[in-house]
């Protein structure tokens, strides 16, 4: 059987919010190392990769590798029934066709369980090559969410340019042009508030704002976000999930035709 108990159930609620705008359904692949999920959005422009390590769970048991196809809309409805303080347990029998979510209130005076049907998803798996990125930018996640929200008003594409001076986000459209320049933080007193840029070589790429805005639904998971860029390869937007894992979004760039 499979059973994973997470004391900080709110993390799973936030993970759902981070996935459900982009993906309608996905396979949750469970092994003794933990839970992994990889899926493309419907338009195959972006890819989401989630990793939750077994060590991050209060209790984790996976007798046999298990892939659970789930409708994320339904799963989101179920997780909305959990309070932020609840302990959440996911469990399933081997080769089961349902999964059960158990929500325990902190003082155990209320225990809820929800059983959901699983789906048969023949999802193809993509190989993501290890890449030594030309630029990596770490910035406050709220700052990145604000930039995406503000600039997407000006155009459906955003140009992200990284040089040794700093990183510039730009968008242009009918109403005009917006540019936001972030300099590398001088002193890094509060780690999570800092803007840290590592540049091997300058990079400038164009991306669709609507996907960037979908990615920022993960903002509540982490105080900082890391962007990784190299010429002509997808952007990586990574949010750490406490000490249990991460969610990574890959976005294919827009290219000159």
């Amino acid at each position: 059987m499979f059973e994973a108990r997470l004391l900080q159930g709110s993390l799973l609620k936030k993970v759902m919010e981070a996935l459900k705008e982009l993906l309608n359904e996905a396979a949750w692949d469970c092994s003794d190392a933990g839970i992994q999920l990889q899926a493309m959005d419907n338009s195959h422009v972006s890819l989401v990769s989630l990793n939750l390590r077994a060590e991050g769970f209060d209790k984790y048991r996976c007798d046999r590798n298990l892939s659970m196809g789930m409708n994320l809309g339904s799963m989101s409805k179920i997780l909305k029934c959990a309070s932020n303080e609840d302990i959440i347990t996911i469990k399933a029998q081997d080769n089961a066709d349902t999964v059960t979510f158990v929500f325990e209130s902190p003082d155990q005076d209320k225990v809820s369980d929800y059983e959901m049907k699983l789906m048969n998803l023949d999802q193809e798996h993509l190989g993501i090559p290890e890449t030594d990125y030309a630029c990596t930018i770490r910035l406050p996640s709220s700052e990145f969410a604000r930039i995406c929200r503000d600039l997407s008003q000006f155009g459906e594409s955003m140009v992200i340019s990284c040089t040794k001076e700093g990183v510039r986000f730009s968008a242009t459209g009918d109403i005009g042009t917006g540019n936001i320049k972030l300099a590398q933080s001088a002193k890094v007193d509060k780690e999570e508030e800092a803007v840290v840029i590592e540049m091997q070589e300058p990079v400038s790429l164009t991306f669709a704002c609507r996907y960037l805005n979908s990615f920022t639904k993960a903002t509540s998971l982490s105080k900082s976000v890391q962007l990784s860029m190299s010429p002509e390869v997808p952007l990586v937007v990574e949010y750490k999930i406490e000490d249990i894992g991460h969610v990574r979004y890959y976005l294919a760039p827009k290219i000159e035709d």
Binding site: H44, E124, L126, S157, P234, Y250, A252
Partner: peptide, 14 residues
């Protein structure tokens, strides 16, 4: 004109 590329172009199915 910019056109949106697909993620398949960069990552191959395994």
């Amino acid at each position: 004109k910019e056109c949106q590329s697909a993620i398949h172009k960069y990552f191959s199915s395994v």
